[in-house]
Amino acid sequence: MTTDATRDAGAPPFVTEGYKPPKATHKARVLPGFRLSLGITITYLSLIVLIPLAALLARPWEHGLDGVWQAISDPRVVASLRLTFGTAFAAAVVNLFAGLVVAWVLTRYEFPGKSLLDALVDLPFALPTAVAGVSLCSMYAANGWIGSLFAPLGIKIAYTPLGIFVALIFVGLPFIVRSVQPVLAEFDAEVEEAAQTLGASPMQTAIRVILPSLLPALLTGFSLAFARAVGEYGSVIFIAGNMPFVSEITPLLIVIKLEEFDYAGAAAVAVAMLALSFLSLLVINGIQLLLSKRGRA
């Protein structure tokens, strides 16, 4: 009890798992270059990130609050937001399971071709989104390698929300694997042996002993995959078909509004998407915080 209190006293709140905030390594400024490096950092971040984002946040209000509400309550916008967040969530859930299995296999087993499989995990990070987009589209089209297997069953994948879901599964996998893998690799073998000595079967050990300690990492991976999927553009627009109300994602709708010179509308939808996505991340962080509190009690 007392050790918990002392440990918590100095820790800043809302720190995500595994992240160490950089600390000053020396009190007095012995090393030179503080002004120069801070100057470069602040100038660059302001010019490239802050001022452009300020332009985005300032833009929607030119037709007043009503204008903003009109822009984001448009049924076409609402449909696109529901589609974007829904498919992103579904794909992240699938990746939660698939990614966990891949991470488990990569850390637990020795088999030929393991390092190849490990390197392959990063392919969705490395492959440009436009390449993934056109390739997935041609694979899942009715005459493609996979689409032609489903076409006789009457299932269309490309140019439907299902296609978006498939593309987001491709995009999100590495986030889960790379979040879980290091935690799984460092899992204390003695805890596992203790569980087995106490009569737990391998399945029980995996589900009741190992899985709970992976939850924070799984949630981190989930939120990264989800955030990426919400904003994803290149790998989705080819396979989506982009039918308004059916398979039109929000990022595309923003581009369409921009091309119609409706800057305020585009900015309003973009800000709404950003706000929703930060809200989702906040909820996931909250769950993580709850879990870590329960784990400590």
Binding site: V49, L50, L258
Partner: peptide
């Protein structure tokens, strides 16, 4: 946190901010 923003925002947003400017 500002430094990490480009990783979390949609690439489309990273494009339209420049059009708005």
């Amino acid at each position: 946190s500002i430094l990490d923003l480009p990783f979390t925002i949609s690439p489309v947003i990273s494009g339209i901010v420049w059009v708005l400017l």
